[in-house]
Design a protein around this nucleic acid. Sequence first.
DNA 1: CGTAAATTTGAATGGATTCAAACGTGGTGG
DNA 2: CCACCACGTTTGAATCCATTCAAATTTACG
Lengths: 244, 244
Amino acid sequence: MNDINIDLKKPKCTDKTWEGHTDCVRCAIRNHVLFSGIPEEQLDHLVSPIKNITYPANSVIYRAEEKSNAIYTIRKGLIKLVQHLPNGSERTVRLVQNYDAMGLESVLKEPYHHTAITLQKTELCQIPLSVITALEKTQPQLGRQLMHQWQNHLDNADKFIIDFSTGPAETRVARLLLFLRKSSNSLCFNKIGREDIASILGITTETASRIMADLKRRSIINCIPGECCTCEPERLYAIANSMS
Amino acid sequence: MNDINIDLKKPKCTDKTWEGHTDCVRCAIRNHVLFSGIPEEQLDHLVSPIKNITYPANSVIYRAEEKSNAIYTIRKGLIKLVQHLPNGSERTVRLVQNYDAMGLESVLKEPYHHTAITLQKTELCQIPLSVITALEKTQPQLGRQLMHQWQNHLDNADKFIIDFSTGPAETRVARLLLFLRKSSNSLCFNKIGREDIASILGITTETASRIMADLKRRSIINCIPGECCTCEPERLYAIANSMS
DNA sequence: CGTAAATTTGAATGGATTCAAACGTGGTGG
DNA sequence: CCACCACGTTTGAATCCATTCAAATTTACG
């Protein structure tokens, strides 16, 4: 497994020569509109505290209750936000990926509300709160950007309830697999643990395993060990839309 | 049943002689900080489009997909936000009450994302978008207020997943009853339909009915027809926390 | 190669859904 | 005023589904 890799060189998102630069246009914070009015030399100085970090799977980015001091945007990969149940087990309440922002509560000076854990190798930008507050002064549109991010989280939460917490277990699994497919294009769901599936869908590990095994047997998904999976999307859609 | 009652007289929330005025201090929009810098005569003019409306139970406030033009704050009562499933039935994704704001997506010029329906007699303030945009210019803290509202919705969504979509049906019902108790103080849950309970908890109407009937038989809740209910909170808590 | 951890499978139990029927309640019209 | 109908709630019985607990199997990794 590759280790955590913090790239400290300089703020990549303003460096046009960086290969990943084109992605930054989609970034929640470093939006192409957002930096438009700021002179080049100020800009470098402002965003230099932004770090590009790559985490392996199963890394904790931050913990619930912890004092917050940065928001994050996900560049590549997948993260679960979990909350701890009184009983000791954990329930996943959101999946974050694909240029979503995360940890917005830090803008409101609140401690983090979830524990954030990577489900795959994940590349993200860590934006210290100081950058946000500094940018806010000169860039009034930033507030609007953040509101859109909040709304986006809400929409995700709604989809989470509708897709992952409604209907029989097989239906939920199918919807999760389709979600993962859309997000990563390559369907590496042999990488995601059964326990994670269970915590996302509110079912037990055994049920998750049984259903996954059954889908394999029916050749709806095909997993070569160590490789990514293939699936038959139409058949998954059929299951996903079957309201018992 | 009492009809919809729109109070057009004048913006009550700035009228200190109005009996409900003290509540307005807690309002998401008319916050005591918020209006501090604005001269009296401008204030009246600014907030005059705000309407106080009282709806009976089962009224539709707005519909999903509909063009949005106002946000709402709930003064008293209870509202469900529902989304329609492909199958035709509906799933409740949030419960709104107690000075919560609702319809924030209108600030982002998006159509409403849910259909909002009252579960009880509900009193609310309708704040046209024009008021928000006008206030935004002179009151920079308004943006922050709105962010807090978004965060509040997110927290509610999390609780919705953890409390109402996790664990066995009886546990979920107990948690819902305790939620209703805390919100309305008086526990009028003979008023809330079994179908509503089902759509909130993601179970069937029959299961909801069976569990409610059983709780009555065990005298954990006592309902006098036409009156409000009483319950034994400790026993409900015991059920609510029983993870099985 | 061997051990720990994760996954799969089995069998029994318990819980939730389905479909159908009975019951109660409130409202309408004869 | 009562009969009747519509609608929501309750109950029953059968079936199906998910969980539990235990064991077997596979996989990952030192």
